[in-house]
Simulated scan of single mutants.
Amino acid sequence: MAVALLTSSVSSVGAASSLKGKIVVNGSSALLPLTLQAASEFKKLNPKVKISASAAGSVTGPQAVRKGIADIGACDWDASMDVPGFKKFEGQVATPIAVIPFAAIVNKNVNVSSLTNKQLADIFSGKVTNWKDVGGSDADIVVVNRAFGSGTRVNFQIKALLNGEFMSKGSNYKEVKSSGDMKTAVETTPNAIGYIDLVYVTGDKIKALKVNDVAATEANVINGTYKVWSYGYYMTKGQPTGATKAFIDYIKSSKFQNGSLKKLKFIPLSAMKK
């Protein structure tokens, strides 16, 4: 997917202490940690700007922008274009703000460290139901999936499952609404497998699997060996203006991209330039 990478200076934003406005962000739970951190920093520079952020899945972002209830729709795909399962949102502009690595994750009790694309597809479709069939212990696999409308789900299906189908029911199937819910479900369910963006892979109750023996790391995304990643976008109704534009410019600034964004395990846009 062609992506225009834009840069901006912090000075134009940081000096705007008299900037006023209210910004409502809705959409991707994968991007929520980034949005919250950026909002915290931006509000210190611009105390007269109010920012609220919520996350119920990527598709709710551009939907909220279309309805006029959000200024920014956070989305894990370019919603100004058709993607599998979703028509484009007419009149919306997609601004790339980060690169998001995604990972297949398992409960800490699962003694498997790497799966191939085919093994992942077989597990998430329900074709393979026991860990012993992919090199693990004799135990039923519990599949945890994101609800339809999740950008993480869209990207994982395309890039990890190579467009394989998801199972949708069964005694060993669970469905969750957000990245936070996914982490909790896999942490608390023995023999569970799910998927999440890398920022949520913390603690010792879950672990990220290698895909085709390649670890889910920022370095491997950048060097091209790990394929399960996407650009994260902010969707706006037309080109952003005012406080909304200033906030997006701050997120795209080299200070934030190479500072807080990297600390949160996202990847700066500039790292993917060819």
Rank of each mutant, 00 (worst) to 15 (best):
V186Y: 07
G194Y: 04
L115V: 11
S171H: 09
S179F: 12
Y195S: 08
S114E: 00
G164Y: 14
N191G: 05
Y200D: 10
V211D: 00
F89M: 10
A192E: 12
V128D: 08
V134C: 02
D204W: 06
T95K: 01
N220W: 02
E218F: 00
Q119M: 04
I206Q: 11
F124T: 09
F89Y: 15
A192S: 12
D181G: 15
R146V: 00
I97P: 03
V176A: 02
K174T: 06
E175K: 10
G126N: 04
V128P: 05
L115D: 05
N212M: 09
Q119F: 01
V134N: 02
S168K: 15
S125K: 12
D213C: 05
T152D: 03
V154M: 11
K127L: 07
A215W: 00
V199T: 15
L198F: 10
T217P: 09
D204Q: 14
S179I: 14
V143I: 14
A147K: 01
D181N: 13
T217M: 07
G224C: 10
K183M: 11
V143G: 07
G126L: 02
E90H: 15
V112L: 01
A98H: 00
V110G: 09
G164K: 11
S125R: 13
A215T: 05
G232K: 00
V211T: 05
Y226C: 06
F156W: 02
G135N: 06
K177F: 06
G135Y: 03
S150Y: 03
F89I: 08
S171A: 15
D197V: 10
G180S: 13
T188H: 09
T129L: 09
T152V: 00
S168F: 08
K227D: 12
K108M: 02
T152Q: 02
Q92Y: 01
T202N: 13
I193Y: 02
I193H: 06
A98F: 02
V176W: 00
T184K: 15
T202Q: 12
N172I: 01
D122F: 13
V99N: 04
V93E: 04
P101W: 11
